[in-house]
Design a protein around this nucleic acid. Structure first.
Lengths: 187, 187
DNA sequence: TTAGTAACTAACCGATAGTTTAGTTATATA
DNA sequence: TATATAACTAAACTATCGGTTAGTTACTAA
């Protein structure tokens, strides 16, 4: 009955996500978003409600993007080898977007750790917890490991992912690969 | 010839540093700084010039604080064991301040990675580079390692420090120790 | 063709950001 | 004790923040 949107919400959301990814939530202003998304404030607010709403949808969009490699980790059955593949796939995601900004989930976890925003924290924590649980599950497939070893190694790999997120900011593929290989060397 | 300062610059700088450490640069406002430091804007500006100036001095102050463990790493002669001690000492620093905000240098590196502020970046990078160089030096003390292995392991440990910074945000000493032990297990 | 409606532009909102300044108070020295 | 000077308070500054709204434009469906 009326005028058509001149932009595609999926397309502009992707652009917003990349900007938030690069700069974090606080540093990214509405003005920057207008410029990057190529639409003006009114359109942003009518489509996403608020800056925070746009950020939330950006994080959800990011989670969808990495969901494929998460599913792969979940559905494969090669134990620890799956986790290693997951590490390699994680860095591919960053390369894909052309960003060198680590992991949006990790970045957001860091930026919001001291803030009071349960909804965003829950969004992040659910991903983190699922990942750690999956690591435990994979490690358990090796029946030679006792329970304590499994927990220690899962904890280790979980924290090693943070090192990986940092590594993926630097454009040196060889160093990243070395890091992954070293991490899995003696598990 | 005139009135005395009612505050000690070292004391208020320490408070500012802790606030920046907890919240990052952008999120910390002058109002928050006034409250935390217990002095008003005028005093902050007369002592530190600007918000950015205060932040710079906070980072320098932080570097001084961790300098002792850095010197220890430098002056000891137990090779890889020194690096491990350095890891353990790093997490003690966080415990000491009562903060669970990882490493201010790492946090700042992350927050400023996309910004154009060469002075702050240089301050961070010099520390990062010195640390990596020192890791290489320590690893070289083991003459059984060839050069390539040394570089790979230094790279690995350097990135593992990022995982440690993330770990130190979580108040679980056992998990942190497990992580460190796993990291050094088979080097 | 036209009336209704949603998408658009652009100016505006109050709040707050970092920063400065005018005016006041306290103190060290002469 | 008087005075010079620096530390203080508090209000104002400009710019920008996230968010809103009045008015215009374009398109769909009747």
């Amino acid at each position: 009955m009326a005028r058509k949107k001149e932009y595609n919400e999926g397309v502009v959301l992707e652009k917003a996500m990349n900007l938030f990814w690069r700069n974090g939530y606080e540093t990214t202003s509405m003005k920057m978003l207008e410029k990057e998304m190529g639409i003006n404030k009114f359109s942003i607010y009518s489509s996403f409600g608020s800056k925070r709403g746009l950020f939330l949808e950006s994080v959800v969009n990011y989670k969808k993007k990495i969901n494929s490699i998460f599913e792969e980790l979940k559905n494969s059955n090669n134990g620890i080898e799956d986790i290693k593949d997951y590490f390699y796939n994680s860095i591919k995601i960053c390369k894909l977007t052309g960003n060198q900004k680590g992991c949006l989930v990790t970045n957001t976890y860091n930026e919001f750790s001291e803030k009071e925003d349960d909804q965003i924290k829950e969004l992040i924590n659910s991903y983190m917890n699922n990942l750690k649980e999956l690591f435990i599950e994979k490690l358990k497939q090796d029946s030679s490991k006792d329970e304590l070893t499994v927990l220690k190694q899962a904890n280790y790999l979980f924290l090693a992912k943070n090192g990986l997120a940092a590594a993926s900011r630097v454009n040196n593929e060889r160093e990243i690969e070395d890091y992954i290989e070293m991490t899995f060397k003696n598990l």
